[in-house]
Design a binder for these strands. Sequence first.
DNA 1: GTCTATATGCGGATAGAC
DNA 2: GTCTATCCGCATATAGAC
Lengths: 193, 193
Amino acid sequence: MKAEDRRELVLIAATGVFGDRGYVATTTDQVAKAAGVSQPYVVRMFGTKEQLFLEVLGRALDRLLVTFRGVLAESSDNLSGRLGLAYVELLRDRGLLLSLMHGFLLGADPVIGPVVRRGFLNVYRFLREEAGFTAEASQRFLEGGMMLNTLVGLRMSDDFESDPSANELLCAALPQKLDVVLDLGAAQRAEQR
Amino acid sequence: MKAEDRRELVLIAATGVFGDRGYVATTTDQVAKAAGVSQPYVVRMFGTKEQLFLEVLGRALDRLLVTFRGVLAESSDNLSGRLGLAYVELLRDRGLLLSLMHGFLLGADPVIGPVVRRGFLNVYRFLREEAGFTAEASQRFLEGGMMLNTLVGLRMSDDFESDPSANELLCAALPQKLDVVLDLGAAQRAEQR
DNA sequence: GTCTATATGCGGATAGAC
DNA sequence: GTCTATCCGCATATAGAC
């Protein structure tokens, strides 16, 4: 395997771990183990843990916008619904949306803050300028996204079977694509260490 | 000052710091300094940092529900709007909503996870059972709340003046009460260390 | 390019004085 | 009830071998 591939591999592994534990709680050693390399090598490749996280965020935002542009290119009817479904599908990319969400809460950080604000606003601008949404429609769309991120962060699907309220809430929040969240929850619980 | 008051003081200070930095990034020393006591004393009072965070979360959820019940008791017209305004007003309680939001993303944590899921579902049940909202209305309400939390976590108000998109987004998201978020942002930047 | 070994700093928690 | 002093473990980062 050559270096470029290995780098991508580490980035994917890091996305998963950051998504699970957040930026600060994640150790470079956990990332290294997940990627099957040594801890110092992870640091060597990216300089610092902070740089690694920034690359994870950048990659995640890239994929998000690429995905959305793909949906837009396909057709333009029921855009909001189709973008929403594509967003939920991104949950399959382990840790992608959750790494972003963790980043969003670090707006007070002098380095991470500006990056996540710019990233979030790029998504907003896509909705307004490329997808042609009104300000209200864009906002509504993002509200749904933040709600999904939160429910996934909460691991609300853990209570899907045992708690009627959790069940109802998830069904209401995910008219379609409920299966993606439930699959993901099962996978996460399985790999629990 | 007697012990009970001091305990409350530390809890308030901790809420502010946890809200700013998140659970893991917050040090018990930062909390101690913010409260004007010694670091070991903070640990003594609450046992562990984790226990302290759990108490912060519990207090925050209490205040949230107490506030909502107060709004409900006043009158029952335009409930959704009035609950929303009361929610935004809770931003004045420094770190309260952000500590909760940080907690919500720690659903994978074996100790914190169950607590935040229960707390979130209690709010949902309030909306459904006490406020009489439909499942869809409850979900919509929570979506708006998670969006607000995210925008505040992002410190989006930092870009309010310099970025037209940020400006538009904040205005769309906060038809009223924009001043609360802007005041808060100014205060946060002022105390930046 | 990738590893092992390790230095260094920091933070939670404890001991114990007052 | 509250402090000072301090232990200990852990995580990032560096040095340097292969």
